[in-house]
Every structure is written in structure tokens, then in C-alpha cells.
Write a protein that binds this DNA or RNA. Structure first.
Length: 375
DNA sequence: CGTTTTTGACCGGCGC
DNA sequence: GCGCCGGTCAAAAACG
């Protein structure tokens, strides 16, 4: 696990470094293009599927450069076998070529959206909050309308001026479920335990927000990435794109269906109704939303299955074919699944040691169940 | 004694 | 303008 984790980190740092280099290079080229021609930006360089961003841990906004350069300084090649590193280098290259086709302003718009986006995590926990690896200071508590349980407001205190906040509230229907909503990006490095959840939620936000774009490309991105993520995390994800902030909801309380996981058809749900803007309040996140979500999710999965088949046989563009290959390879890699699953479950299940007794409900959402569901 | 939590006050947005 | 509501502030209390 440690080795795999280390390798993933190294791949990530490579991707980040190359991505930054390519982005600056791309920006320079765009400027030159505009200077030369005045208008007429080459359409071939603008690919809608560039909404996707695979950079994990993007919640660490300000430290991306320093961290990656620091990691990049270590020569990681000797720690891997040649084939392995070659294979990973290929993946990285694919990701980079994919990323390189990005339109800068679209990417920035997505970034801005994601920066404002909220990520809501539903998890069963007896503890007052889930242990996510960060230090939080409570600064308020209010009774939310329609929910007998109070909502608590926390601020990240790992660094002065860190803008990240979270709201914690128990679900009105099932008080063993803790709904934690994160908002903002950390301005400091995160400890590994926090990175696991932060990168997971960040990636989920990116994937789902990408998928929320009203284009077939966006939906297909959600398909590939959603499969990877969801089948690994044993979770269900919903997105609320309504104003003012889109909210991504990760449900870590459900038992995954092994058949669904094998088929790659993890439930991917996009509720299209508009009443979920405050879905972290709990009362809106109840059964009504779920029934609705499952209905749309059913339709969604059918469409996505068709889209997956179409792209693997006759991909509309080379980049989408390589994306499919890359993500399929990642999803099929049990090591990747295990690492991601363990990261999530260790955070949510293993972090309750501070109050002595961890989860006592023994329901299907604890660490072991999540891990088993993915192996 | 420094840090964190509690809790009522305050503020801004929104609908009427 | 008024009331409601979600979110934040800050003084007091609690904690270690």
C-alpha cells in the first residue's frame, strides 16, 4: 500500500509538473497566435472534454507548484521497474496530451466553478464530526429549519487565513448519518490523511461538475471517471448545479452492489430538480431526493453504457479513445482501486480513534465493508 | 493561561 | 419596510 501510494504520488507530481509547463506553454502559444492573427483562434485546439481535470489533491491550491517541484526533485525512476515506469509514463503522457488540448478560458471557468463548489459527504458516524485529517475550529451553531439537529460551522485552523469551512449536520431521517459539507480550497499543504479525502472530494467535484456540463462530451467524461471513482469508493454521487454554488454530494453510507461494480455500472446520479440547493441541510437530502436520483440515475446509466460502448469502438476523437483506455486501465487495476478505497475508508472509518469508540453501528459502511466491496 | 466551544447578537440576502 | 433565514462574529464560559 505504501509503495503504491508513493508511486501514485510520483505519477501525480509528474502530471502536475508537466501540466503546469504545458499550460504556460499553451498560454504563450495562444498569445502568439492572437498577436499574429488578431482573431480566429484555432478551433482544433479547443476540445470540450478538456473540462476534465485529473489532478488529484487540487484542493491545495497555492502549494501546487512548490509541492510538485519538491516532489519532482526526487528522482523517482529508480524506485520502479523499467516497464512499470514506462507504462506510467505513457499514462502520464496520455493525460498530458489530453490536458494539452484544453482551452484555457474554459478551464479557468471550470476552475472558478469548482473553487466555489461545495462538496457534501454523507457518512455514518457516531462521532460529532468525521475525522478528515484537518484541524477545525467551531465558530457557530444554528438550528436549521426543518431539522431537529443543529448545524455546526467549522473553520480550518491548520494555517492562518485558510478559507476552508465545513458544515456538519446529522441527517433528519437517519441520525447516524453525518452530512459534512466542505467549501473552499486550503491554502496550505494537507497531511496525508486529509489529502485522501480532499483529493477524493476534489476529484469527484471535478468529475461531476464536468459531467454536469450540457454536452455529450461532459457526460461521457462523467461516465469514464465516474466509473473509476465510484467503483473505487463504493459511493454514490450526486450533483446539484443550481445557484449559487454547485454542490457535489458523495454518499458513503450505501453498500455497493457487487454486480453493479463488476459491470462498471456504479450508480451515478444526477438529480435534475432544483430543490437541492441546500442539500447539506439534511432535510432536503432525504428519501425524496434519493428516489428521484435513482430514477434519473437509471436513465443516466443506460445512456452512459451506450456512450461507453460507442467510444470504445468508434471514439469520436483520438483523445477520447486514449481517455477511455487510460481510465479503464486505472479502473481495472485492483491496486488503484484498493489504494483509493483504503484511503477513503481509512479516513472515514479509522479516524474515529480520538473518541475512543469508533463506529459501533457495524452497518455496511465501515472501513472493512468499503474495502471489501472493492476487492 | 492559551485555546476552543458556546451562544446570543448581528448582518446581508431574499421574499412579501 | 418588515420578517425570515442562513451564516458569521465575538464575548463569555469551558477546557486542558
Amino acid at each position: 500500500m505504501i509503495n503504491e501510494n508513493q508511486q501514485l504520488k510520483e505519477v501525480l507530481s509528474q502530471v502536475t509538473v508537466k501540466y503546469n509547463a504545458l499550460q504556460s506553454h499553451f498560454a504563450t502559444m495562444m498569445q502568439q497566435n492572437q498577436a499574429n492573427e488578431g482573431g480566429g483562434v484555432g478551433e482544433d485546439m479547443v476540445a470540450p472534454r478538456s473540462f476534465m481535470d485529473l489532478s488529484l489533491g487540487a484542493l491545495v491550491e497555492g502549494d501546487e507548484n512548490s509541492q510538485s517541484s519538491e516532489e519532482g526533485r526526487r528522482s523517482d525512476e529508480q524506485s520502479r521497474s523499467p516497464e512499470e515506469s514506462h507504462e506510467q509514463a505513457n499514462k502520464v503522457q496520455r493525460l498530458n496530451s489530453l490536458k494539452n488540448s484544453a482551452s484555457n478560458n474554459i478551464d479557468q471557468a471550470t476552475e472558478a466553478t469548482i473553487r466555489k463548489a461545495r462538496v457534501s459527504v454523507r457518512a455514518r458516524s457516531e462521532a460529532p464530526t468525521i475525522a478528515d485529517g484537518c484541524q477545525w475550529r467551531k465558530y457557530g451553531q444554528k438550528m436549521a429549519k426543518g431539522n431537529p439537529c443543529p448545524r455546526a460551522y467549522y473553520r480550518c485552523t491548520m494555517a492562518t487565513g485558510c478559507p476552508v469551512r465545513k458544515q456538519v449536520q446529522r441527517c433528519a431521517e437517519d441520525r447516524t448519518i453525518l452530512i459534512t459539507t466542505y467549501e473552499g480550497n486550503h491554502n496550505h499543504p494537507l497531511p496525508p490523511a486529509a489529502m485522501a479525502l480532499a483529493s477524493t472530494t476534489s476529484s469527484a467535484a471535478r468529475m461531476l461538475l464536468s459531467g454536469s456540463m450540457p454536452s455529450a462530451d461532459g457526460l461521457m467524461n462523467s461516465n469514464f471517471l465516474g466509473r473509476t471513482f465510484l467503483s473505487c469508493s463504493s459511493s454514490m454521487a450526486t450533483i446539484s448545479a443550481s445557484a449559487p454554488f454547485p454542490t457535489v454530494s458523495l454518499d458513503l453510507t450505501q453498500t455497493p452492489d457487487p454486480l453493479q461494480l463488476q459491470r462498471g455500472g456504479a450508480p451515478f446520479q444526477i438529480p435534475f430538480m432544483n430543490h437541492q440547493n441546500q442539500n447539506f441541510t439534511g432535510q432536503n437530502n432525504g428519501l425524496g431526493l434519493y428516489n428521484q436520483s435513482k430514477f434519473s440515475g437509471l436513465q443516466m446509466s443506460q445512456y452512459l453504457e451506450a456512450a461507453a460502448g460507442a467510444s470504445s469502438q468508434q471514439g469520436p476523437s483520438p483523445s477520447s479513445a486514449s481517455l477511455a483506455d487510460t481510465v479503464t486501465a486505472l479502473a481495472a487495476d485492483p491496486k488503484f482501486s484498493a489504494v483509493l478505497a483504503a484511503a477513503i475508508s481509512s479516513v472515514l472509518g479509522g479516524g474515529n480513534t480520538n473518541n475512543g469508540n469508533s463506529n459501533i453501528n457495524g452497518s455496511a459502511t465501515t472501513t472493512s465493508d468499503n474495502s471489501n466491496g472493492n476487492n
